[in-house]
Design a protein around this nucleic acid. Structure first.
Lengths: 122, 122
DNA sequence: CGGCATCCGGACCGATACTG
DNA sequence: CAGTATCGGTCCGGATGCCG
């Protein structure tokens, strides 16, 4: 569509906006954090993250697989084993996502304090 | 103060998880993009982003103000004028958010292609 | 101009139970 | 172990209309 080669999130019609939103959903950053050191199994991701139900985790993983960010490998064994790993594309997202995560951890205190101050002023 | 860095997104109870989620909501990255070059008025942000209703934009801006990421300055004039700007804390988030935005713009094509391929396989 | 009030639909999320 | 099925709730986000 665009004669230009680039996507622009400031354009309401640009697909990059949809992509950007996906990256910001509730569990995506946490899944990436779990997978950043290599292949992990479903149960491992689940316990890494904690407090996520199987259904929602499956949904998240399926979406990421569909978007080409992770791979899903099934081993036909008993008991079944399924392993997840970042694709090359997914790995390239690790840096950006990590930057946001680190900011959140580093500044959560300040945000919370600001929130309290704001609420007290009401 | 905690001797350790206290906050860890992989801990379900950690407040940083809430903060991380806020950063990923639908309009936050776009507001930051609009404010990155300096102070802007409500209408300017609105037209920068496009396709966002006043109500939702107001909600987003209030939340960001409450979290200490932007300032809101009202000028008692007729017609009224309200200006928004990033705080120091907000500015420190500009880099991380920009990294994700750039990734989205650079790789949206690949994500879309992967999505199509995945859907065709069904 | 920059909101706020109201209503509303649907996406997202979760608890629980069950299965190959 | 790694999901699927079902049901239900919340809440985000949008449309519309009014106000100082």
């Amino acid at each position: 569509m665009d004669s230009m080669d680039g996507f622009d999130v400031m354009n309401p019609q640009c697909p990059s906006r949809v992509v950007l939103q996906r990256l910001g959903d509730k569990w995506t950053p946490l899944v990436f954090q779990s997978l950043k050191d290599g292949t992990r199994r479903f149960g491992e991701i689940r316990s890494d993250i904690g407090a996520v139900t199987p259904k929602v985790l499956t949904q998240t993983l399926r979406t990421l697989e569909r978007d080409g960010l992770i791979t899903r490998t099934i081993y036909p064994e008993v008991p079944p084993r399924v392993e997840y790993a970042l694709t090359r594309l997914g790995s390239s997202l690790l840096g950006p996502l990590d930057a946001v995560r680190e900011w959140a951890e580093a500044n959560a205190g300040e945000v919370l304090a600001s929130r309290d101050a704001f609420d007290d002023a009401l």
